[in-house]
Design a protein around this nucleic acid. Structure first.
Lengths: 187, 187
DNA sequence: TCTTACATGTAAAAGGTTACATGATTAT
DNA sequence: ATAATCATGTAACCTTTTACATGTAAGA
């Protein structure tokens, strides 16, 4: 891809290849189909072109299995530059602008974080997330109060569901930090 | 648009025009920029073409204000078929396939629901949502338990954040039903 | 035998993002 | 005077979606 940043789908594929290598397109597709992870389309029309773009960018390398497997399939592995691209994306600091766009991308980043960057970075990520959420939520609450008089009840409640979901993520982040501290020994 | 269903952006604009009419493109843009509602791009390159598509489809009608206003601006109103299209979209029953894609679209539908369909429909929507969530969450919990042994802690926690967010929405939906019952008199 | 699962792609169409482009009016 | 706000659009590029297309192997 000529684009400088990876799309969310490309990023998800890069992380999945890292965690599951060697793996083939069909297997990655099944992850989208069968697990709740990511809300990506499981259609081959999105995943195979995305893998081809990652391969053109030399972030993954695919080889057609000729001998061992029963069927012809192309197995992918990360290249060194693919790994460093993944690390760069995971290391990006959380900013306020990440929050209004929703948590799914941040959750995806966190899912890959331990296997790529290790536990210490996970805890730093969670602390940073908690800090940004704690700063963001009051502004949402304020906005909610201001517009409550103007809007219908359903519109207010819809907005409240958004605020509440951020509050839940904050509580989750704090619990998650504790979980890392409790189980520091394993892994 | 030749496409049969409206994109999320087009649907959002249709609902916003309904609630704010008469309104112009710039005002709609500001809603995306200044309020946390929707995570849509506030760039003119997305919103003006989308409004043009809605107008071509005869769902909204725009008129250039020539006299009263200080500046030239195009104000939009819903057409009857725009209103019925909006109703159809809002009335669509919730299915299991709506949930893995995430709540944002459902929240958006709910936000417009009271002003278009009335309170009774809002309560039905919430009851249906609660029912679907209650059926969906155990399958997520089960998936989480199965994969917990395989995955890293951060991957498990990321998945758990997703499950937890659905649980929060379920609690929200039940509270919201009570709120409608309590304040039935007003509006 | 027939269907399901495995396995990989391409083509057309459309929508969204980014960047570009323009111009009037109000506030500093 | 100059910057910020109001106001509307276009063009290029890329991604995604939907649909089409093909073929093997295993299981019912």
């Amino acid at each position: 891809m000529s684009r400088s940043t990876l799309s969310l789908l490309e990023f998800a594929l890069l992380g999945l290849v890292h965690d599951h290598q060697p793996c083939c397109g069909y297997g990655l597709r099944k992850i989208f189909t069968e697990t709740p992870m990511g809300r990506f389309s499981d259609s081959p029309g999105s995943i195979y072109p995305a893998l081809a773009r990652l391969e053109r960018a030399r972030l993954i390398r695919g080889r057609v299995e000729n001998s061992t497997a029963v069927r012809r399939r192309k197995v992918f592995r990360l290249t060194p530059s693919g790994r460093s691209e993944l690390s760069r994306r995971l290391e990006r600091p959380i900013t306020q602008s990440d929050l209004p766009r929703g948590m799914p991308e941040l959750a995806l980043r966190f899912a890959f974080m331990e296997s790529v960057l290790g536990r210490a970075e996970c805890v730093r990520f969670l602390q940073s997330l908690a800090k940004e959420l704690a700063a963001y939520i009051p502004s949402l609450r304020h906005h909610l109060e201001v517009e409550q008089t103007t809007n219908s009840l359903s519109a207010s409640l819809a907005m409240e569901s958004g605020v509440m979901s951020y509050e839940c993520y904050l509580a989750w982040a704090r619990r998650a930090i504790r979980r890392f501290r409790q189980t520091r020994s394993s892994s």
